[in-house]
């Protein structure tokens, strides 16, 4: 059994991201984060975390080699791609 309480590494980062961006109490403050953007990142995270196997079965592996995905892509292109992937992977 391993224990980790902090300090770097992709697994630790994924643990933190999935909690802070996707869990916790949602409260709308005065300054609204564009939820689309946050959701986009959360979806990116989810794709990375959850649906990689499904996506790979479909021959989609564009995130491979770049754990933070599509950095150089145009935004609309990325969103379109995400939409297609979400539908295919059954993420709501």
């Amino acid at each position: 059994m391993r224990s980790s309480t902090g300090g770097g590494g992709p697994a630790q980062l994924a643990d933190v991201l999935e909690r802070v961006l996707d869990k916790g109490i949602v409260i709308a403050g005065d300054i609204q984060v564009n939820l689309l953007d946050i959701e986009l990142l959360t979806i990116r995270l989810r794709l990375l975390i959850a649906s990689a196997d499904k996506a790979r079965e479909m021959g989609i592996d564009w995130w491979e080699g770049d754990p933070f995905l599509g950095r150089g892509q145009k935004n609309g292109e990325l969103e379109d791609r995400l939409k297609r992937l979400e539908r295919a992977a059954g993420i709501d």
């Binding site: 059994m1 391993r2 224990s3 980790s4 309480t5 697994a11 630790q12 643990d15 909690r19 802070v20 869990k23 916790g24 109490i25 949602v26 409260i27 709308a28």
Partner: peptide, 21 residues
């Protein structure tokens, strides 16, 4: 199989739903 324990965390996973805006 290797089990990995993380935390203790603030209860992020247990404050959703009923408290949501």
């Amino acid at each position: 199989v290797t089990y990995e324990l993380t935390g203790p965390w603030p209860p992020y996973n247990f404050v959703g739903d009923e408290e949501q805006a």
